[in-house]
Every structure is written in C-alpha cells, then in structure tokens.
Amino acid sequence: MDIVKDDLQSHQIKALLQEHLDDMYATSPAESVHALDIEALRQSNVEFWTAWNEQELLGCIALKALDSEHAEIKSMRTAHNARGKGVAKTLLNHLVSQASARGFSRLSLETGTEDYFTAARTLYSGHGFVECDPFADYVLDPNSVFMTKQL
C-alpha cells in the first residue's frame, strides 16, 4: 500500500469523496454533517493523502490545521472494495505521524453517534483517542461524538 499526498484531481478521488458525502447525508441529519467537500479540502490549512494499491484507490484522509498546536482529522474514508484490509488503520497511523512531525500537540475529530460509525469510533479509541467536549467551531450535537488525542 502506497500513501501519497493527493492534489484532489483524479476522477477516482472525486468519486470516493462524493460517495463519502452521500453516505454522511444518508446517515445523519444535514445539520449534523461536517464532512468537507472537495473545495474545502483544497484550502491551504488542509493536507490530503490517498492510499493506493497500484492503480486502485483504497482510501483517503485529511489533516486540517486548526491552529499551530491543534489539528483535526477530516475525510477519513476506505473504499468499499478495500474494507477490512487495514487501510483505515494505516491511514490513521500515517496521519498521526504527519501531525506529530508538523509539531501539532493535539489531534481531534468529530464522528457520528449512529451505528454506522461504530467501526470508526472503535478504530479511534483503539488508537488512543478519547471523547472530549466540542472543539473549534463545533457545538454539542446529539448526533456527534468528539474525540481527541495528545501527541
């Protein structure tokens, strides 16, 4: 598996991100969806990586800088055909390493409370993330779980 910094131009990544947004809106109320669209992922405070097996896109993840010490995980997604193969774990480990290398001392995320997000919450808690209060511009939401990890 190769992880590369991605320019968000390929049709494969555009399709995976659209699938991600479609699933988020199908799972959670619109006001509780915090997934970024492709334009938001192109902002200067966001770094975006994709995982590949040759020409096959396996998944993606983004790091959004909130300030000089705090960053957020965004757009974590594994392609359907790659689920259960360790892609999410590999991408998460890569992002944590990148966040540490860039000097961030805290890494946080928002995910859903619905059963659909159980695997994500389990992955994050298994990697040292703990539940926390809302951060950045988030507010308490019965459909959101906020998690953080000191780096």
Rank of each mutant, 00 (worst) to 15 (best):
residue 40 A to T: 06
residue 15 A to K: 05
residue 12 Q to L: 05
residue 12 Q to Y: 00
residue 116 Y to F: 08
residue 50 T to S: 14
residue 61 I to Q: 07
residue 125 S to G: 12
residue 131 E to I: 04
residue 45 N to S: 07
residue 119 A to L: 08
residue 95 L to N: 10
residue 110 E to M: 05
residue 104 F to V: 01
residue 73 I to R: 02
residue 36 L to M: 10
residue 150 Q to F: 03
residue 114 E to Y: 03
residue 64 K to M: 11
residue 23 D to F: 02
residue 74 K to D: 14
residue 147 M to Q: 06
residue 103 G to M: 01
residue 148 T to A: 13
residue 151 L to A: 09
residue 45 N to T: 02
residue 36 L to S: 11
residue 102 R to M: 04
residue 37 D to N: 12
residue 97 S to C: 14
residue 12 Q to K: 03
residue 101 A to R: 05
residue 104 F to Y: 03
residue 3 I to P: 12
residue 121 R to Q: 09
residue 147 M to A: 09
residue 59 G to C: 09
residue 36 L to G: 13
residue 27 T to V: 06
residue 2 D to Q: 13
residue 63 L to N: 08
residue 79 A to W: 00
residue 45 N to W: 00
residue 36 L to I: 02
residue 110 E to A: 09
residue 131 E to R: 05
residue 5 K to Q: 10
residue 75 S to M: 04
residue 33 V to G: 14
residue 148 T to N: 15
residue 134 P to R: 00
residue 69 E to L: 13
residue 53 N to R: 08
residue 30 A to V: 03
residue 40 A to R: 09
residue 20 H to T: 05
residue 136 A to Y: 06
residue 137 D to C: 08
residue 56 E to M: 09
residue 136 A to E: 14
residue 119 A to P: 15
residue 94 H to C: 11
residue 65 A to M: 10
residue 31 E to T: 05
residue 91 L to I: 00
residue 114 E to T: 10
residue 24 M to Y: 05
residue 99 A to G: 11
residue 81 N to H: 15
residue 99 A to Q: 08
residue 82 A to I: 01
residue 129 F to Y: 04
residue 43 Q to V: 06
residue 134 P to C: 05
residue 44 S to L: 03
residue 86 G to D: 07
residue 84 G to Q: 07
residue 21 L to P: 13
residue 84 G to P: 14
residue 147 M to E: 12
residue 40 A to F: 04
residue 143 N to V: 04
residue 110 E to Q: 09
residue 20 H to W: 03
residue 63 L to I: 01
residue 133 D to L: 06
residue 128 G to I: 00
residue 13 I to Q: 07
residue 91 L to D: 10
residue 138 Y to L: 01
residue 47 E to T: 05
residue 67 D to K: 00
residue 8 L to F: 00
residue 102 R to L: 07
residue 122 T to L: 15
residue 9 Q to R: 04
residue 62 A to C: 11
residue 66 L to K: 05
residue 47 E to C: 11
residue 47 E to M: 06
residue 16 L to V: 01
residue 82 A to R: 02
residue 136 A to R: 02
residue 22 D to N: 11
residue 58 L to K: 07
residue 58 L to A: 11
residue 143 N to Q: 13
residue 100 S to G: 14
residue 117 F to N: 13
residue 46 V to R: 12
residue 110 E to N: 06
residue 137 D to T: 04
residue 8 L to D: 06
residue 111 T to Q: 10
residue 31 E to D: 15
residue 150 Q to E: 12
residue 151 L to S: 11
